[in-house]
């Protein structure tokens, strides 16, 4: 049984880390990061079977790939707080000579990162490759991936989605961050994607929905159901309904905070809504 109090505290601390990272450097992507804080916390602290020490090959453990690399603030915070690198290093986010680049990369050797992402649409393909390598290695662990909903407008995703179903890549769980927003507005206004559940199903995927994508218990039970469905010949898609900017009232339900940092007063407001739990870096 998950220790929900501890996970909730971690979520709040992660929100603070996100706000403070982007505020300090006056750039970065808080909206999508906040929307996925609960998902990342659940994934790294409750769902994934992870090894203590990071190795690139990840043999004998579950792996995660972030396709929508711009939500790096949440990724970095959760990785640091899971012990992959010192929490203090979050101070260097987007600064010169940092391992915490604007978008995640292996280039500077940051533990926890296995592929560069940022240019959208590439993560599912990479995850499929890693999943096929797991099968070749007789490694029964799972590959998790996260992509944005707007990101699904990139054509490469659909090559990958077709491949995974056609080749029974059933050790793969792709979660779609369904917040309905992208840089220029709502996904509905920018480029409507229609019924994503029906689309994934038509491609041959098993699809689950988590309606409360910012609720830890809903995420954990939904993702466990997804995990139970692996190994049955089909790749798994989880449609995670999230609220962009979740946990900071003025950032919620809008695309305005996709790639904009809060000013001093806004930071203060955001932090007041999320009192420190584990201690700031």
């Amino acid at each position: 049984m998950a220790d929900y109090k501890a996970l909730e505290d971690l979520v709040i601390q992660v929100r603070r880390d996100i706000l403070r990272q982007v505020h300090k450097v006056n750039s970065g992507h808080p909206g999508g990061s906040l929307g996925c804080a609960e998902f990342f916390v659940a994934l790294y602290n409750e769902l994934m079977d992870r090894k203590e020490n990071f190795t690139m090959d990840g043999i004998g453990e579950d792996l995660f790939f972030l396709s929508n690399g711009h939500i790096s603030p949440v990724f970095y915070s959760v990785l640091a707080r899971a012990g992959y690198f010192p929490v203090e290093e979050l101070r260097t986010f987007r600064h010169i000579n940092s391992r915490l680049q604007g978008h995640p990369t292996t280039h500077e050797g940051l533990p926890g990162i296995r592929i560069a992402s940022g240019s959208l649409g590439q993560g599912i393909s990479v995850a499929i490759g890693a999943a096929q390598a797991k099968k070749l290695n007789n490694d029964k662990h799972i590959i998790y991936a996260l992509c944005g909903d707007g990101e699904l407008q990139e054509g490469q995703n659909w090559e990958a989605i077709m491949y995974a179903a056609g080749n029974n890549v059933d050790n793969l769980i792709v979660t779609v961050d369904l917040n309905g927003q992208q840089i220029d507005g709502s996904t509905e206004n920018v480029l409507p994607m229609g019924n994503l559940k029906a689309k994934f199903e038509a491609f041959g995927w098993e699809v689950l929905e988590i309606e409360k994508g910012n609720d830890l218990s809903a995420i954990i039970s939904g993702m466990k159901k997804a995990k139970d469905k692996t190994g049955n010949g089909k790749p798994i898609c989880v449609l995670l309904h999230t609220i962009m900017g979740h946990g900071v009232d003025f950032m919620m339900h809008t695309h305005d905070w996709h790639g904009k940092a809060p000013n001093d007063a806004q930071l203060e407001t955001g932090l007041l809504q999320n009192s420190a739990t584990l201690g700031d870096y």
Partner: peptide, 26 residues
């Protein structure tokens, strides 16, 4: 046959998959 991956006419996915496979030591 187990080490040959026919990806279809989908080169972008092929490159991404190849990158992912290296992570497992391939």
């Amino acid at each position: 046959p187990e080490r040959f991956f026919q990806v279809g006419i989908a080169e972008a996915n092929m490159i991404g998959m190849a990158a992912g496979m290296t992570i497992g030591g391939k």
